[in-house]
Amino acid sequence: MSPTPTRKSLLTTYLQVAPLTLVLICFFVVPVALVVVVSFFRYQMLVGIVPDFTIRNYVDLLTNPTTWSLYISTLKFTLIVLVITFVLGFWIAYFLVFHVRNLLVAIGLFLLCTVPFWTSNIIRMISWRPVLGKEGLINNALINTGIIDSPLQWLLYSDFSVVVAYVHLFTLFMIVPIFNSMSRIDKSLLEAAIDAGATRWGVVWNVVLPLCKTGIALGALFVVTLVMGDFFVVSVMSGGLSGSATSGIFNDLQFLNYPRAAASAVILLIVVLMIATAIFRLVDVRKELAR
């Protein structure tokens, strides 16, 4: 508030921010740091964790072809889900911001999209079973209308159902930030573009899309971290057929091999951070904030 904070008010500020800092240090910084440390420890059968400095865990993991195939599979899911959620999120936000003329209606429809976010993810995941299953709604409908003779097997417990569940769970993380940046676009900018002869598509491409870049980047960041760090959706929805980058962590933890689980976690963390950095390179966030 005051441009030159006094020493006393500065103390207040630090006191105000102290609880947050404390929680984050205790439950984020220290744990993550420990994960890094433990990832260099040694695991010995029957003994457990032995403090050491070894890169064997990493060598083990990186030379194991399973790690690579799991990462490739996860990246494939990430990419597919990213594209679908972006297309859905962008056009739904576009519909709400530019096509719904009544503001109250727009807010109501927006809330309609966000309500499921506040309900249990696991339940939402399970709820696909009676829909996609062998005797599920879709198969029944298709058989009854005579389009197919025998139930489609690939609807549930397949890559398809994994993608469906991801899209179901995470599209919201795209809609909200894109909606946020889109609703800040001055409508007269669109009119100015139309004035200059831009087609409807030209307006989207030349004006709306560039001005939503920050929202898209934030949404992409959420989706990438959520899909990359997921283990549960893949294991439930693929019926155990597909693994994910985190499957290794899961297996190691079953055998209490904390060092190698930690090393897996560190690799995952590095990959996620690299993608995050790349996203923020693509969108110059500082420049966006300055405007």
Partner: peptide, 26 residues
């Protein structure tokens, strides 16, 4: 017709030159 908007409606993500050239680009 050409319209000059009250808020000017200059495209914030385009340089001055690109703003002026927008019509030609379209």
């Amino acid at each position: 017709t050409a319209m000059m908007f009250q808020s000017y409606a200059l495209f914030p993500h385009l340089s001055i030159l690109d703003n002026v050239a927008f019509y030609l680009k379209m």
